[in-house]
Write a protein that binds this DNA or RNA. Sequence first.
DNA 1: TTAAAGTTGACAATATTACTTGGATATAAT
DNA 2: ATTATATCCAAGTAATATTGTCAACTTTAA
Lengths: 141, 141
Amino acid sequence: MKLSTKGRYGLMAMYQLAMAYGEGPISIKSIADEEDLSENYLEQLFSTLKKNGLVVSSRGAYGGYMLTRHPKDITVGEILRSLEGENYPADCVSSDGFECKKEDMCVTKVVLAKIKSGIDQVIDSITLQDMIEDANMVKNL
Amino acid sequence: MKLSTKGRYGLMAMYQLAMAYGEGPISIKSIADEEDLSENYLEQLFSTLKKNGLVVSSRGAYGGYMLTRHPKDITVGEILRSLEGENYPADCVSSDGFECKKEDMCVTKVVLAKIKSGIDQVIDSITLQDMIEDANMVKNL
DNA sequence: TTAAAGTTGACAATATTACTTGGATATAAT
DNA sequence: ATTATATCCAAGTAATATTGTCAACTTTAA
């Protein structure tokens, strides 16, 4: 039940964009430097984030990426689902017509569905804005 | 954020033991047949479940495994943690002295900790007994 | 004593993850 | 125009984790 680096790096990167919201595009290079991540790898993550409408890009010098919405309107859930796919703990809980082999609905399915909804509840309730505020609180300790 | 087969198979197997609670040991073979899983693989899972005190084994003919406690006193959380380790979404949320490279506490850590506690809350609130009752409800639809 | 069942450790196949490489294309500043 | 700075795109690859298999061994009940 681990988050992959996709999810973690993506979250860190989106947090950077959130902090610079309204200040024009941020380049991958500057994020990679800041967070000590691979530039090329981050590119791929941003590519999917863009595909999913969470960021827009501007190419060329002084280009980079920007959030499409205000940080308070982007949830951690959107980001994680975008990068990691649905957080289904198992395929049988997915929506796309997967069918268990066993005729009777398996019991673990009920459990897995509960886990999924628990995770969703948490990640959909946290916005990028919340992250910024959390960070400020930690700083002021 | 997927559960591995360890967790899923283990859960299914423990459910079988729960249904047979009080009726003596159940062999791996019969569970493997019932749930269509590999016998040898299940062995490994039961080995760790035993190490963690969730089941006891009796060897020899008519042997097998039994729950150490009543199904109402064994949670899904115990089983999953036993098989998959702590469900930490990332290492920095773990308890064993892991330190982030960055001096300031990273913000994603706060988010990850929230996810973890959300998952724990769900899985620790479901017992094997609950699973049995859920199954009965589904049957009677 | 024999057959059923658990125990152990090594290992192999497969899948996924986490990148790397190499180039093409777009844009802004000079 | 040229150059520096970016994104964009498609493969390829190395590392790691997952998901098992296999074989030899030990214990125990019938």
